[in-house]
């Protein structure tokens, strides 16, 4: 299976921020979710992949093309939308559609019309009159309608009302039908990512905390409530990411859950009350707080 993109040893320094030693790749046909707080480096990562920023060191390959040397070939099959990207205010959406269509041969007018209807956008309206949500939807529509092989979306659902968010996720789900098309999208709404992504990547402070397939990710983490006076020593229990205690109740967040672990805990005198799966947000926050790899 070929890769949608591959970053290796990528570093990018700014004045107050640096993306350090990123090694990340994604197989074709996948959806990857980037999770990180604001300023973690998600947008920079997407910009490097989209050819809008050059990495200081390291190699970047997008859809089999070296960036930036073969960026034209890569960009031709790339859909790219970041949160701060804007369209031309004085022009209508129709003008933008014609402009994009004239550049990309893959433009699908029927699909575009379908998206217009679903996103509730008016083609003859000037962009100046668009609300934030409409602008985001317009940008996504322009990207979706040309059916790019790799979609790079920065916060595609941020600032959208619930109905619009739902429409966007539905359109994003269309992409899943085609196994040659991939999506990399960032969001701080972990619910979106939890639902749609095959792979999840945590970014924090310019480094990758974790990047794994979602199911095993969610499988490995458990929130364990036990009863008793036993409190684990983190050094001796590397599987445990966080511990909280209140009286006889101990809450453990476990990053490598297994039946064996529970047994070992029981031998320490802990009475296990529950061991529930955690949601992505919880996992992410715990990971960041624990300051280590997930």
């Amino acid at each position: 299976m070929s890769t949608a993109f591959a970053l290796s040893g990528v570093t990018k320094r700014y004045e107050n921020f640096a993306l350090r030693d990123i090694d990340l790749s994604m197989p074709e046909g996948q959806v990857m979710g980037l999770v990180g707080v604001n300023g973690a480096g998600k947008t920079t990562l997407l910009r490097i992949l989209g050819g809008l920023a050059l990495a200081d060191t390291g190699t970047v390959e997008v859809l089999g093309h070296d960036m930036p040397a073969q960026q034209v070939a890569a960009k031709s099959d790339l859909g790219f939308a970041t949160e701060d990207m804007r369209l031309f205010k004085t022009r209508t959406l129709r003008w933008h559609m014609d402009f994009v269509r004239s550049i990309y041969p893959g433009w699908d007018e029927v699909y575009a019309a379908d998206l217009l209807r679903r996103f509730d956008l008016r083609a003859e309206q000037r962009l100046a009159g668009f609300s934030h949500g409409q602008r985001v939807k317009a940008l996504l529509m322009l990207n979706f309608a040309r059916r790019p092989k790799l979609l790079l979306l920065d916060e595609p659902t941020t600032g959208l009302d619930p109905v619009a968010r739902d429409e966007v996720l539905e359109a994003l789900a269309d992409v899943l039908r085609d196994e040659a098309r991939s999506v990399l999208f960032s969001s701080h709404n972990t619910k979106d990512i939890e639902q749609m992504a095959d792979t999840i990547t945590f970014v924090h402070n310019g480094t990758l905390l974790a990047s794994r397939d979602k199911e095993s990710f969610l499988d490995d983490w458990r929130r364990v409530i036990c009863h008793g006076s036993w409190v684990p020593d983190k050094a001796a229990w590397p599987e445990i990411a966080a511990v909280r205690q209140n009286g006889s109740i101990v809450e453990l967040k476990v990053r490598q859950f297994s039946a064996g672990l529970l047994e070992r805990m029981q031998t320490q005198g802990a009475e296990i009350r529950s061991a529930d799966p955690m949601n992505l947000e919880d996992i992410f926050v715990t990971t960041v707080r624990a300051g280590g790899a997930a």
Partner: peptide, 17 residues
């Protein structure tokens, strides 16, 4: 200023283009 540069540069062009 209007952040349309990002849109233009995301099109299949090199900086030289």
């Amino acid at each position: 200023k209007e952040h349309t540069l990002a849109f233009v540069m995301s099109l299949p062009v090199t900086p030289l283009d």
